[in-house]
C-alpha cells in the first residue's frame, strides 16, 4: 500500500461514466484485479470520507507505464467533485488496497458477471486471465445502453460477451441473473467472478453454490477510510474451520470474498440478528481456489 500525490493525466467520459487516469507508478506496479484505490476528498468540505474505486486498468509497460485508471458514475458529492477534476490537477491516492481475485490453477473456463459501475475491475481481470491462457466469457448488465460498460473492449476480451439492459435498449432485456443460467450452460463455466450490487451478488452466489461452481465476488461497502483503520466496513465471514464467524473488514480482508463463507442474512438481511449459529455449527467451506 502506497500513498501518492498523483497527477491526473487524463479525465474523460464514456457513456454515463467518468474515467480518471493518474500517474502513480508505485501503486500501478503492484495493482492486481479486484483491488481498489482510495481517493481523498478536498479538505474543508462537508463530505469527509475517502472514496474507493476499483482499479480498472494498471499499466506497467509502454507509453502509459506507471499510470492507473478508475471509472465512476456520479451519484453523490464525492463523485460529483471528482467529475470536475481536470488534467494536471493532483489527487490524494492510496493503493493498491484490499485483496485481489485469485486465478484458478487448473480450471480453465472463467465467466465474469458484473453490473453497472461494478464492471470496472472485470476488464482488468479479463486481461490477466487471458494472459494466463484461460477462457473468458462475460456478462455485463446495466440500466440502459448508456450504462453498458465499454461494450467494444468487452467483446475484444471475451469469447462470448453477453449484454443485458433493464430497458432492453442494448442486448437482451432483463438482468444478469436472467442471463446467468444460460451462460453457465453454453460456456461450460468452471469458475465464476462477480461484481454487482449486494442482492445480485447473493443471487449469483446461490446459483453457483447450487451448481457447485466455485465463485469469487468483489463487494462494495461503505468505507470511511479504505485502509483498514476504522473497522466499520465489517462483513460476517464464517471461519475456515466452520467454528463460528468473524467480522472481517471489507477493505482489508476483502473486497474479494468467497461468497459461500459470507453470512448473508447477518450481513444484508433486513433483521440483522436473524442468522443464529445453526446447532450443528457452520459448514466448513473450502477457500478458493485452494
Amino acid at each position: 500500500m502506497k500513498r501518492a500525490r498523483a497527477e491526473v493525466l487524463n479525465a474523460r467520459r464514456f457513456g454515463v461514466y467518468h474515467s480518471i487516469t493518474v500517474v502513480a507508478p508505485e501503486v500501478a506496479q503492484r495493482a492486481r484485479p479486484g483491488q481498489f484505490v482510495s481517493i481523498g476528498m478536498p479538505q474543508g468540505r462537508s463530505f469527509i470520507f475517502r472514496r474507493q474505486f476499483s482499479i480498472h486498468e494498471a499499466s506497467r509497460r509502454g507509453g502509459w507505464a506507471g499510470t492507473l485508471e478508475f471509472v465512476f458514475d456520479r451519484h453523490g458529492p464525492g463523485t460529483s467533485w471528482l467529475a470536475g477534476v481536470r488534467v494536471h490537477e493532483f489527487l490524494d491516492v492510496i493503493g493498491p488496497l484490499g485483496t485481489a481475485f485469485a486465478y484458478p490453477a487448473k480450471l480453465n473456463a472463467c465467466l465474469l458477471v458484473s453490473e453497472g459501475h461494478a464492471s470496472a475491475p472485470m476488464y482488468f481481470l479479463a486481461q490477466e486471465l487471458r494472459a494466463r491462457g484461460k477462457r473468458v466469457d462475460m456478462i455485463v448488465g446495466a440500466e440502459t445502453h448508456e450504462h453498458v460498460f465499454k461494450p467494444i473492449e468487452g467483446k475484444r476480451l471475451s469469447q462470448t460477451f453477453s449484454i443485458v439492459t433493464a430497458d432492453g435498449s442494448l442486448g437482451e432485456r432483463g438482468s444478469v441473473l436472467d442471463a446467468l443460467p444460460g451462460m453457465l450452460e453454453t460456456t461450460g463455466a468452471e469458475v465464476v467472478y462477480a461484481a454487482a450490487p449486494r442482492p445480485t451478488l447473493r443471487a449469483i452466489a446461490e446459483m453457483c453454490l447450487e451448481r457447485e461452481i466455485p465463485s469469487q465476488i468483489a463487494i462494495e461497502d461503505e468505507m470511511p477510510c479504505g485502509t483498514g483503520l476504522c473497522y466499520t466496513c465489517a462483513i460476517p465471514v464464517i471461519r475456515k474451520d466452520g467454528g463460528g464467524y468473524d467480522n472481517l473488514r471489507a477493505c482489508a480482508e476483502g473486497p474479494v470474498f468467497n461468497p459461500a463463507r459470507i453470512l448473508w442474512d447477518r450481513w444484508i438481511g433486513d433483521a440483522p440478528g436473524s442468522a443464529p449459529t445453526p446447532p450443528e455449527g457452520y459448514a466448513k467451506v473450502r477457500t478458493w481456489p485452494g
Binding site: I48, P224, Y231, C233, I235, Y245, N247, P272
Partner: peptide
C-alpha cells in the same frame, strides 16, 4: 469482541457516525 452488527458507519455533514 466481534463488535456490533452492520452497517456500522455513515457519513454525515462534516462527520462520521459510527
Amino acid at each position: 469482541s466481534r463488535g456490533s452488527v452492520v452497517p456500522r458507519a455513515a457519513e454525515t455533514a462534516s462527520g462520521l457516525l459510527s
